[in-house]
Amino acid sequence: DLRKKIVDLHKSGSSLGAISKRLKVPRSSVQTIVRKYK
């Protein structure tokens, strides 16, 4: 699940930009998912 991957990467200390590059999703999507998770 993409959300879980993003949250896991964020927990392990990756920046939003790094996560978005790695998973090839827009940075804004990463930000939204991380914000919802918090």
Rank of each mutant, 00 (worst) to 15 (best):
D1K: 10
D1W: 15
D1I: 11
D1L: 12
D1N: 12
D1Q: 11
D1G: 12
D1T: 12
D1H: 09
D1R: 12
D1M: 12
L2A: 04
L2I: 12
L2R: 08
L2E: 04
L2H: 04
L2S: 05
L2V: 09
L2Y: 08
R3M: 09
R3G: 07
R3S: 10
R3T: 12
R3Q: 10
R3I: 15
R3W: 15
R3P: 07
R3D: 09
K4Q: 12
K4N: 09
K4W: 10
K4A: 11
K4M: 11
K4Y: 08
K4I: 08
K4V: 06
K5S: 09
K5T: 11
K5D: 05
K5I: 13
K5Q: 13
K5A: 12
K5F: 10
K5N: 07
K5L: 13
I6D: 01
I6L: 00
I6F: 02
I6N: 00
I6G: 01
I6E: 04
I6H: 00
I6R: 00
I6S: 00
I6W: 03
I6V: 09
V7I: 15
V7R: 06
V7D: 02
V7K: 04
V7W: 13
V7E: 09
V7P: 02
D8F: 14
D8N: 09
D8V: 09
D8P: 02
D8Y: 13
D8I: 11
L9A: 05
L9Y: 06
L9H: 03
L9E: 04
L9D: 01
L9N: 01
L9G: 01
L9W: 07
L9M: 15
L9Q: 05
L9K: 01
L9F: 06
H10C: 09
H10P: 00
H10G: 02
H10Y: 14
H10R: 04
H10K: 03
H10M: 10
K11N: 11
K11R: 14
K11W: 05
K11I: 13
K11Q: 10
K11F: 08
K11S: 06
K11V: 11
K11H: 07
K11E: 09
K11A: 09
S12R: 12
S12F: 08
S12D: 07
S12I: 07
S12A: 14
S12Q: 13
S12M: 12
S12P: 00
G13E: 00
G13T: 02
G13C: 05
G13R: 00
G13N: 04
G13A: 02
G13S: 02
G13W: 00
G13V: 00
G13K: 04
G13H: 03
G13F: 03
G13Q: 02
G13Y: 00
G13D: 01
S14F: 15
S14H: 15
S14R: 09
S14Y: 15
S14G: 05
S14Q: 14
S14E: 15
S14K: 13
S14P: 01
S14T: 07
S15E: 03
S15H: 03
S15I: 00
S15N: 04
S15F: 02
S15K: 03
S15Q: 04
S15M: 03
S15T: 09
S15V: 02
L16R: 02
L16C: 05
L16F: 10
L16E: 05
L16S: 06
L16D: 06
L16K: 05
L16N: 08
L16P: 08
L16H: 06
G17R: 15
G17Y: 13
G17M: 12
G17I: 11
G17S: 14
A18C: 04
A18H: 08
A18N: 12
A18S: 11
A18M: 11
A18F: 10
A18Q: 13
A18E: 12
A18P: 01
A18W: 09
A18T: 10
A18K: 06
I19N: 01
I19S: 01
I19D: 00
I19M: 03
I19E: 00
I19K: 01
S20E: 04
S20D: 00
S20K: 01
S20F: 00
S20Y: 00
S20I: 05
S20A: 14
S20M: 05
K21D: 07
K21V: 07
K21P: 02
K21G: 05
K21I: 09
K21M: 08
K21T: 07
K21A: 09
K21Y: 06
K21N: 08
K21F: 05
R22M: 15
R22G: 08
R22L: 15
R22Y: 11
R22S: 11
R22V: 14
R22F: 14
R22T: 14
L23P: 03
L23R: 01
L23M: 05
L23W: 03
L23K: 01
L23G: 01
L23A: 00
L23Q: 00
L23T: 05
K24P: 00
K24S: 07
K24W: 05
K24T: 05
K24I: 04
K24D: 09
K24A: 09
K24N: 14
V25A: 03
V25D: 00
V25H: 01
V25K: 04
V25Y: 04
V25G: 02
P26M: 05
P26H: 10
P26T: 08
P26R: 09
P26L: 06
P26Q: 07
P26I: 05
P26Y: 05
R27L: 15
R27M: 13
R27T: 05
R27Q: 05
R27D: 01
R27F: 14
R27Y: 14
R27K: 13
S28I: 07
S28Y: 11
S28V: 08
S28R: 13
S28N: 08
S28M: 06
S28E: 09
S28W: 13
S28T: 08
S28H: 11
S28L: 08
S29I: 15
S29G: 06
S29W: 15
S29F: 15
S29P: 02
S29V: 15
S29K: 15
V30H: 02
V30F: 01
V30C: 00
V30L: 03
V30E: 02
V30P: 01
V30K: 02
V30Y: 01
V30S: 00
V30I: 10
Q31G: 08
Q31I: 09
Q31N: 08
Q31M: 08
Q31F: 08
Q31E: 12
Q31T: 10
Q31S: 12
Q31W: 10
Q31D: 07
Q31L: 09
Q31V: 12
Q31C: 07
Q31H: 07
T32Y: 13
T32W: 13
T32R: 15
T32I: 14
T32H: 14
T32D: 12
T32S: 13
T32M: 14
T32G: 10
I33K: 01
I33F: 04
I33C: 00
I33V: 13
I33W: 03
I33H: 03
I33M: 04
I33N: 01
I33Y: 03
I33D: 00
I33S: 03
I33P: 01
I33R: 00
I33G: 01
I33E: 05
V34W: 06
V34Q: 02
V34I: 11
V34M: 09
V34S: 02
V34R: 03
R35W: 07
R35S: 10
R35K: 10
R35L: 09
R35F: 07
R35Y: 08
R35Q: 11
R35G: 08
K36N: 11
K36Q: 14
K36Y: 11
K36M: 12
K36F: 10
K36A: 13
K36P: 02
K36I: 10
K36W: 14
K36L: 13
Y37G: 04
Y37A: 06
Y37E: 05
Y37P: 04
Y37F: 12
Y37I: 07
K38V: 13
K38P: 05
K38A: 13
K38S: 07
K38I: 13
K38H: 15
K38Y: 14
K38E: 12
K38W: 12
